[in-house]
């Protein structure tokens, strides 16, 4: 099946099998390997991307379902070499260690701030329910989201 997508502002078009998962399309056909696969039960969130403005798990979606969609992946967040506020905050607050969950974590964090300009700690933690991190204990991630929200509000 032929599909057309806009990913990080660029047009992509490929002939794909219906069973190809969107995460595999992004990583292999589009060569955007920033989004990761950490499980097969849709419970780790490492593959989180933004699809038409919504954070979704790209491992739980077929590429054909995304035909015509506008996608932003971790690679598309920085603008002209300038980091997105959430990326900057993860860096400043040490919101990552091994980095494997980080792209998904940053995309989920962006969704939290997009929908709630001043999230509380509890709202941030609730908003990250779909993303597992084994390294940080989440505390520095919570700090990062708070800092990013505060910086965006300025």
């Amino acid at each position: 099946m032929k599909i057309h997508l806009t990913i990080n502002g660029k047009n992509y078009s490929h002939d794909v099998e219906p069973r190809l998962l969107l995460i595999h399309y992004l990583r292999e056909n589009a060569a955007l390997t920033g989004s990761h696969v950490g499980c097969e039960t849709s419970l780790c969130g490492a593959c989180t991307i933004e699809l038409d403005g919504k954070a979704v798990k790209s491992c739980t979606m077929f590429a054909v379902q995304a035909d015509g969609a506008k996608i932003t992946t971790i690679e598309g967040l920085a603008n002209d070499g300038k980091l997105h506020g959430v990326q900057e905050a993860f860096w400043n607050e040490h919101g990552l260690q091994c980095g494997f969950c980080t792209p998904g974590m940053i995309m989920a964090s962006k969704q939290i701030i997009d929908r709630n300009h001043a999230p509380s700690d509890a709202e941030i933690r609730h908003g990250l329910e779909g993303n597992l991190c084994r390294c940080t204990g989440y505390q520095h991630i919570v700090n990062a989201v708070k800092a990013a929200a505060a910086a965006a509000g300025k």
């Binding site: 990583r27 060569a31 390997t33 920033g34 989004s35 920085a78 990326q87 993860f90 980095g99």
Partner: peptide, 21 residues
Amino acid sequence: IRRREDPRLITGTATYVEDIQ
């Protein structure tokens, strides 16, 4: 001080085994 390894990790440009082609 913030970490020097982070820029590649927060931009999705780090190379894990699965990323090798």
